[in-house]
């Protein structure tokens, strides 16, 4: 049966501003269904973002919403979570926001393993500012600041997250909405820093410059370039060139920051009492 998105949306702000065929809406829908599945009260959820297309999400969803500065969403979210560890703080970010200007905060949120969920909508481009190359633009792909093809190698956000210590990391695509919902839901349930990378579509800014301007064609491109982790194990590095591995890539129990800090408080209070 139809999902009641209206309950979670600020309907007076709809329709949203995202371009025809943009994948962000698909990710936001998956996020809303996962929140619903968790049974969380809207009052107990905060959705925090930085700057960019994805970062306009807070305006449309009916939670405690915070639209911060470029790349800094995780820092604001860290403050919110530490102030209220009992509440649910979700950060939604784009590839430029999370991996370029916000790269340092991303690494350290992973390292800290603080109980936040980060959803990165990766569309390989800076959409809002006009199609400039992002840290995930594929090598050789065209962008408004890479008119002869990108010369930087793309950053693998999920691999970086795992290396930096995020304890739940999953990658899905907007062509597989049910799977994306499952990953986000599992990320919510996970105690620790969860990263869900959603490989998405930007037909206008990325597609148009790379012979993929048709939303359907671009969605298929995304699906075809995703390789399930199991299958990837049997593939050679050459075969995996230009592809991205999908699935639950990492799931580990590890000390969570707010819980550990509660122990710090206890130790501090014992020390103060003993004095």
């Amino acid at each position: 049966m139809a999902f009641n998105y209206e309950y979670y949306l600020r309907m007076d702000k709809m329709p949203h501003m995202w371009c025809p065929g943009c994948g962000i809406g698909i990710v936001v829908k998956a996020m809303l269904r996962a929140i619903d599945k968790m049974g969380w009260s809207k009052d107990d959820v905060a959705v925090v973002s930085g700057i960019g297309c994805t970062s306009r999400t807070p305006g449309y969803v009916d939670f405690n919403t915070l639209h911060t500065t470029h790349g800094r969403a995780l820092t604001f979210a860290t403050g919110l979570k530490l102030a209220r560890p009992d509440k649910h703080v979700i950060v939604i970010s784009g590839d430029g926001d999370a991996a370029a200007i916000g790269g340092n905060h991303f690494l350290h949120a992973c390292r800290r393993n603080i109980d936040l969920t980060l959803i990165v909508v990766n569309n390989y481009i800076y959409g809002m500012t006009g199609g400039q190359a992002s840290p995930t633009t594929p090598f050789g792909a065209r962008a408004s600041t890479a008119p002869y093809g990108a010369v930087d190698s793309p950053l693998d956000i999920s691999r970086v997250a795992i290396a930096a210590g995020a304890s739940y990391v999953a990658r899905g695509t907007v062509a597989q909405g049910f799977m994306l919902e499952k990953f986000i839901y599992n990320g919510f349930k996970h105690k620790g820093f969860a990263v869900i990378e959603a490989m998405s579509t930007c037909p206008i800014q990325y597609g148009r410059r790379n012979k993929l301007s048709d939303p359907v064609q671009l969605l298929k491109w995304v699906k075809e370039h995703g390789v399930p982790a199991k299958k990837a194990e049997k593939m050679s590095p050459e075969e995996l060139e230009g592809k991205f591995i999908t699935g639950e890539l990492h799931n580990q129990e590890r000390v969570e920051y707010t819980e550990e800090y509660e122990l710090v408080r206890q130790r501090a209070q014992e020390a103060a009492g003993a004095r």
Binding site: V48, L66, T68, T69, R72, L74, T75, F76, A77, T78, G79, L80, K81, L82, A83, R84, K87, N104, H105, H108
Partner: peptide, 12 residues
């Protein structure tokens, strides 16, 4: 990040 975190905590 420190500045962002204090704004987040204050909002709570």
């Amino acid at each position: 990040a420190s500045m962002g975190a204090i704004i987040g905590a204050s909002l709570a």
